[in-house]
Simulated scan of single mutants.
Amino acid sequence: MVLPFNILDVVLHFDKYLPVILQQYGMWTYVLLFIIIFCETGLVVTPYLPGDSLLFIAGALAAAGMLNIWILLATMILAAVLGDTANYWIGHTFEMKVLAWKYSPVKQEHLDETQKYFEKYGGFTIVIARFMPFIRTFAPFLAGVGRMRYVWFLGYNVIGGVMWSGLFLLVGYFVGNLPIVQDNFTLIVYAIIAVSFVALVSVFAGIFVAMKKGTEKKVE
């Protein structure tokens, strides 16, 4: 039980740990940040890694001169775009293999419904999902499963990656060193995480309501 709390402590107090990391690893710190964002967006098994809060903190520390904001922007945008791309192709490969299983729990009609959804709402979903924890990890995977056209996916992937990474990095960069922010840094990180999860709950609530209405219509 010690390890998760240590990880949480590092995430919430990344501004305290980063100078030590920079002192020990120098430019490799950018590689570490790249790996975290890539895995958070690119692997369905690591949706719990920090995303929004990490970008905000990194931007704030760049304003303090600890990191270069231009290298950060390029690195984090690249990590976000490549992460979603990897996730898309993992989903695409998974969809092809899961149907080959003799006792597959996933039926062709399920995949057909997923494909129809991404044909209709795929672009909007890929962009908006960037701002919602967990959903941003699963959206590109499902886009691959639903065989969304890769050319379209890539375009929305880049748009979403630039918007998400740029927004949180630049907000952190421009307001992170304000006295009120410095004095309440941990609370602000908590607030970012809370707002992200409120958005997540809202999406699931909307899906539940839509499914309930659909079920009621079928009954009628």
Rank of each mutant, 00 (worst) to 15 (best):
I7D: 01
F38D: 00
P19G: 05
I36R: 02
I37M: 06
G26S: 04
D15S: 09
W28A: 09
Q23G: 14
P4M: 04
P19M: 07
H13S: 04
P4N: 08
V20H: 11
F5N: 01
L32M: 13
Q24R: 11
M27R: 12
F5K: 02
L8H: 12
P19S: 06
Y30L: 04
F34W: 10
V11H: 11
M1V: 04
F5I: 01
L8E: 13
F14N: 08
Y17C: 07
N6T: 06
K16F: 12
I36W: 08
V31Y: 12
L8K: 14
I7Y: 14
N6W: 15
G26Y: 03
T29W: 02
H13I: 01
I37Y: 05
M27Y: 15
V11L: 14
V2L: 15
M27K: 13
H13K: 09
K16P: 02
T29C: 06
I36L: 08
D9W: 15
V10K: 11
M1Y: 03
M27N: 12
I36A: 03
H13W: 09
V11C: 12
L33H: 06
P19T: 01
I21T: 07
I37S: 02
Y17L: 10
V2C: 06
D15F: 07
F38N: 01
L12I: 01
V11E: 14
G26L: 00
W28L: 10
N6I: 05
I7F: 15
D15L: 07
V2F: 15
L3W: 09
L32W: 11
V2W: 14
L3F: 13
L8P: 00
P4I: 01
N6V: 03
V10S: 13
L8D: 11
F38P: 00
V10C: 10
I21Q: 04
V11Y: 14
L22N: 05
I35G: 05
V11R: 10
K16C: 02
L32Y: 12
L22T: 02
I7H: 05
Y30G: 02
W28C: 00
I7L: 09
Q23A: 13
L32D: 00
W28I: 05
Q24A: 10
V2T: 09
L3D: 00
L33P: 01
F14L: 13
Y25L: 09
I21C: 06
T29Y: 03
L18S: 01
I21M: 08
V10A: 14
V31S: 10
F5R: 00
N6L: 15
I35P: 00
I37F: 03
F38E: 00
F38C: 03
T29S: 12
N6H: 15
P19F: 08
V11W: 13
L33W: 04
Q24P: 06
P19L: 06
L8W: 13
V2P: 00
P4A: 07
V2I: 11
H13G: 01
T29N: 03
I37P: 00
W28Q: 09
V31L: 12
Q23S: 14
K16V: 03
M27G: 11
D15N: 11
L33A: 08
V11G: 11
Q23K: 08
L22W: 03
L12N: 10
Y30I: 02
H13A: 03
H13P: 00
Y17T: 10
L12R: 08
P19Q: 06
I36M: 07
Q23N: 13
V10M: 14
M1D: 04
M1F: 04
W28T: 05
F34G: 00
L8M: 15
V20E: 13
L8Q: 14
H13R: 11
L22E: 09
Y30S: 03
Y30F: 06
